[in-house]
């Protein structure tokens, strides 16, 4: 019984905050757009009782999902979002791992300060920090002025309103989500393991590769998920820093919702996005589980 209550809490959480909202979005994605409040049809009419529920299901169909396959806009937006998310995650990893490694190897007295410095930017609104990048990256911005003053470039670089600015904004914003889990796993590594490896004839580089990297793996995986998943649906950063040629699924979804007033197609876009994220993650975790069982 106690075990049951223990499991019940997380499952209830999942049910209330994931499955129920997903069910609502999925139902809307099977509806048709209408000029009404709310702007889709059919809606659930409980006064009709069982007959009303049956009538509701009779009217639902998969037309909106078929529609998504008919215009290449959607799959190109998905692909370009996947690409941006993938490269941003790699970028965060390349920048974040050395920072986390440095933090974990700093002296005990320094670590709280370093940790503080990583968290400090969160004290300012995310929106203001992204706006600040506009001031840095624009053609008359700080970066271009600096580079032109020291004579590296003679013409200002066009960074703002391109994908470069989107990458910079995403990597900057999500970096702490990569650093913190990696730091957590690096910090736990027992220093005597590395000493033992060196005693047994490993070079420092070999010891790093054979001991530190495998033990940091859980942190790297957690960090990558924390960056990759929100990035793929990112809307604010591409709309502020990107140009009109930056194609991301978050923007397409916004247009369906606001410009076309087509909640059903917008919901279908969201459902497909969720499937694109959930299926690989579930497969990946199952694979991890199997490996772990095989090792034991």
């Amino acid at each position: 019984m106690r075990r049951f209550t223990l499991i019940a809490v997380p499952y209830l959480w999942l049910l209330a905050l994931f499955l129920v909202p997903f069910g609502i979005v999925f139902k809307i994605s099977l509806s048709d757009a209408a000029l009404a409040i709310p702007p889709y049809t059919p809606t659930l009419d409980l006064s009709e009782g069982w007959a009303g529920i049956k009538a509701l299901f009779a009217e639902l169909d998969f037309d909106n999902f078929v529609w998504l396959t008919q215009d290449d806009l959607y799959w190109r937006a998905y692909l370009s979002s996947l690409q941006i998310a993938l490269f941003s995650t790699l970028g965060c990893l390349l920048v974040g791992f050395p920072i986390a490694y440095g933090m974990a190897n700093a002296s005990e007295s320094w670590r709280p300060t370093l940790m503080m410095l990583v968290i400090l930017p969160f004290w300012t609104s995310f929106l203001i920090r992204v706006y600040a990048w506009i001031g840095i990256l624009s053609t008359e911005g700080l970066l271009n002025q600096f580079l032109m003053t020291i004579g590296i470039i003679s013409e200002p670089l066009q960074i703002l309103n391109t994908n470069k600015a989107v990458y910079i904004g995403i990597i900057y914003t999500y970096l702490p989500f990569m650093i913190l889990p990696i730091y957590a796993s690096l910090e736990r590594i027992d220093g005597s393991l590395l000493e033992a490896a060196e005693d047994l004839g490993c070079s420092r580089l070999q010891a790093f590769w054979l001991i530190t990297v495998p033990l940091a793996r859980p942190g790297v995986i957690a960090g990558s998920f924390l960056v990759f998943i929100p990035t793929i649906g990112e809307f604010v950063i591409p709309s502020l820093l990107g140009g009109s040629r930056t194609l991301m699924i978050g923007k397409v979804l916004w247009e369906e919702f606001f410009s076309n007033r087509d909640w059903p197609v917008a919901s279908a876009v969201a459902v497909v996005l969720l499937l694109i994220l959930v299926i690989p993650i579930v497969l990946f975790q199952r694979n991890e589980q199997k490996q772990r069982e095989a090792e034991q």
């Binding site: 806009l73 190109r76 040629r245 930056t246 194609l247 397409v252 247009e255 410009s259 076309n260 087509d262």
Partner: peptide, 19 residues
């Protein structure tokens, strides 16, 4: 109307994004 709106939005996306 909704059908024309969709044509208009799609045209606009094409104009702005070049695709």
């Amino acid at each position: 109307g909704p059908k024309v709106q969709r044509v208009v939005t799609r045209l606009w996306t094409k104009v702005k994004s070049g695709s």
